[in-house]
């Protein structure tokens, strides 16, 4: 049985201009020990689907799913009390902006020990010991002294390490990393990714990595799921996705990687992700897709079989075709 199963998840926001569908029929499957990357542009509903699962969305959001279960627990009709026993303990999350994700009024130690206090049955001394252990685990030097530090005394990379320590406090079975390296500079990015990969290997937890950086995907993940405008458009093993993308959007994303550029100018995908008012009738990618025809513009595409990467496309690309 898989650790996390989500089928046909949709999230609608009640906005001033009417309902807006941020996530549209997404399936997610994660097994114990998996590393799944969810890739997509800003506004493709990557974070929202994870926040929906954690129950962290504001009340304006309506969440529907055919199935949403974690470790055999049905998350759909879990009461707030029961949900709080799961999140932060078996399932935890780290965020994009480490500097603003830590509370400036409390010491790092307080914030790590807080998780331990509410979820585990440890006494004061044990909590302190565990907090030091965690700080060591995420590679923070001089942990005992750093426990007394306030967030503003830490750099971005250190803050993200603290966030990771906090998330790992109760030995979660699933860690969701929501663009954990976006706000960090390049050398620190690599360190944090290595750390996450190492910790995943050591603990055997599952890891969901939300990112818009294909480089991160290639380095870290085993399986990739590409999202576009709230829909999952393709899912493959990393190797397969990079060598043989089936959805034109995936292909275009890969073509835009600097390492793959053949000309002086990087290829781009013209246009932007459709918003609330310009949602196309047929395939959501059709206005930006260079292969689109009338059928694409009129009818929503079917989901192709697994050997075509579950691509949501009328005309999935196969290797023979010219992508560039």
């Amino acid at each position: 049985m898989s650790l996390l199963t989500i089928k046909n998840l949709s999230v609608d926001f009640d906005t001033a201009g009417g309902m807006f569908r941020a996530v549209d029929g997404v399936d997610i499957n994660v097994d114990q020990g998996d590393i799944l990357a969810i890739v997509g542009e800003s506004g493709s509903g990557k974070s929202v689907s994870m926040l929906a699962m954690m129950g962290l969305l504001p009340w304006t959001a309506t969440i529907t799913a055919d199935e949403m279960s974690f470790d055999g627990i049905d998350l759909r009709d879990l009461g707030p009390m029961a949900r709080r026993k799961v999140i932060g303990r078996d399932m935890s999350m780290i965020f994009q902006e480490p500097m603003s994700s830590l509370n400036p009024c409390f010491t790092v130690g307080f914030q790590i020990k807080e998780s331990l206090k509410i979820h585990l049955d440890l006494d004061r001394a044990e909590r302190k010991k565990r907090a030091i252990e965690l700080m060591e685990l995420v590679g923070i030097p001089d942990p005992e002294r750093r426990l007394k530090a306030f967030p503003h005394q830490l750099s971005g990379g250190m803050s993200q390490r603290v966030m990771i320590a906090m998330a790992l406090a109760c030995k979660p079975r699933l860690l969701i990393a929501d663009e954990p390296t976006t706000a960090l500079d390049v050398t620190i990015q690599a360190q944090i990714l290595d750390l996450l990969a190492d910790l995943q290997k050591e603990t055997g937890m599952a890891l969901i990595l939300i990112t818009h950086d294909m480089g991160v995907v290639a380095e870290t993940a085993q399986r990739v799921q590409v999202q576009y405008a709230g829909q999952k458009v393709e899912e493959q093993e990393v190797r397969g996705l990079f060598s043989d993308p089936h959805h034109p959007y995936t292909a275009a994303l890969l073509a835009a990687l600097p390492e793959r550029a053949t000309e002086r100018h990087l290829p781009t995908i013209p246009g932007v992700v459709p918003g609330q008012y310009d949602r196309p009738q047929g395939c959501l990618f059709s206005p930006r897709c260079k292969f689109a025809d009338d059928k694409c513009r009129k009818t929503p595409p079917p989901v192709q079989p697994p050997d075509l990467g579950l691509a949501r496309c009328h005309y999935p690309i196969t290797r023979q075709e010219d992508v560039a």
């Binding site: 962290l56 709080r84 932060g88």
Partner: peptide, 25 residues
């Protein structure tokens, strides 16, 4: 603020999130 989302993601109860993490700030 982001740190309120963090506090909630830790599974803290609303009185603690609102009365301690938010109010102090």
């Amino acid at each position: 603020e982001d740190y309120i989302r963090t506090a909630r993601s830790k599974g803290l109860a609303p009185p603690r999130v609102n009365g301690l993490h938010a109010l102090r700030n």
